[in-house]
Amino acid sequence: MATRLTHGLSALWRAIRELSGDDGYERYLAHRAANHPEQAVLSRRDWFAAQQQQQWTGIKRCC
């Protein structure tokens, strides 16, 4: 019971982090490590700046 509860809570926490983009840099690092391990990665700050710029170039919010 207690393990199931902690399991559920940690799944919820992971979902909140992913939805908000809080874990975005970790996912970026994982993606780079899996697909382009030979290339250098951006720093946390540079990644965040690039990600924000990319995120707000299209229609992202509606009425």
Partner: peptide, 27 residues
């Protein structure tokens, strides 16, 4: 086309959350 930037295979509940947050405005 997965590129870790805009094309990212994502769990459906997460996509649902993003999509709903995008469509639901003051209208």
């Amino acid at each position: 086309l997965s590129n870790g930037r805009d094309f990212i295979p994502t769990h459906r509940w997460i996509v649902f959350g993003h999509h709903f947050a995008a469509i639901a405005g003051p209208g």
